[in-house]
Design a binder for these strands. Structure first.
Lengths: 173, 173
DNA sequence: AGTGAAATGTTATACAGTAACAGATGAGCG
DNA sequence: CGCTCATCTGTTACTGTATAACATTTCACT
């Protein structure tokens, strides 16, 4: 590795190397705060699943999560994982990556759950890591076009499949 | 809604009422032409699956397709459906709707398969019908943003979930 | 302490997708 | 004509993803 652009002052960490311990801790704190504020119960199972998702920036399938739960001594069945994931997704603490049938922790858990921050996901097919960015005005314009056709928009999914900088640099690419 | 614009001269038919017989026939003709031109084999199984998809604007799961194949006296196993669907998707004659794990016929089969026409899909959660529109410049701008982060973009998925005009008008809504 | 809502545990099953190999079909060629 | 290679089809068996349904526990709030 020739140390590719260590860390410009870019605010939202993505594929670039970062202090993952901090990244996890701050996300966890945000979720805890949001739960307290909104009267949501971050139960042990949910907290554990959140931690599992936060531990990597990879998208994890429900059964990957389940496996890790079990590795932690929790004799869980599939619904346990799905229920925790549903909770996290419903409240904006995690996102479902449709293309992968998998889940990632949200990069901005403090932003509104209902307040629809329109995310877009970059999915690396090399390492399965997923970076979240804002679809912003682009998503809005597509949504507007849909509304012009009389379609009532509820949610939009934007997923970009490709290869992340690290995997481009790697031999196997 | 008070009669939402029955059929303006909008070129790409979508959720609005239309002459479905014509719609199917023209799509079929386009696919046949494209296959002839590109040396692709539109075998009976593939043609039959295409027809099944064209018959409705609903997104059909692979097993829905399979069921209809069987209803037509074809004692098919899952791989039969998947292989035909893979062929149609690979050549741009159908699209996969990630959010539904389902498939729809392409509305513009004559446009390039490789020539990446960036589609966006409006998915009605009431009737499962799917309308295709162009993500156009919006998708391009998100893709550009991704490239700016060093991400090599290969494909983008834009799916909009909501309620179509018909289902908004319907009681069950 | 009592009660209703929410969360969990558990079994069983439905739905989605693929690996692997055997057999059939078809286009091009000597 | 008959070979032959590539592609397509048939079939078995399996892996992976997701949920229905119901019993039980936990928690917040009287």
């Amino acid at each position: 590795m020739s140390d590719p652009a260590p860390d410009p002052a870019a605010p939202p960490a993505a594929f670039q190397r970062h202090d993952h311990g901090r990244c996890v801790a701050s996300a966890r704190a945000s979720v805890e705060a949001a739960c307290a504020e909104r009267g949501l119960r971050l139960t042990p199972a949910r907290a554990r699943v959140l931690e599992i998702l936060l531990d990597s920036h990879e998208a994890l399938g429900a059964y990957d999560v389940l496996e890790r739960l079990r590795a932690g001594g929790h004799a869980a069945q599939p619904p346990v994982a799905y229920r925790a994931l549903d909770f996290l997704v419903a409240n904006g603490f995690a996102h479902r990556i449709e293309k992968l049938n998998a889940f990632v922790a949200c990069a901005h858990p403090d932003e509104g759950a209902e307040t629809a921050h329109a995310p877009a996901f970059m999915i690396c097919r090399g390492c399965r890591r997923v970076a979240e960015t804002s679809a912003g005005p682009a998503a809005a314009s597509v949504a507007d076009a849909a509304r012009d056709l009389g379609f009532e928009v509820e949610r939009t999914v934007v997923e970009i499949e490709g290869v992340c900088p690290d995997c481009q640099a790697r031999p196997s690419e």
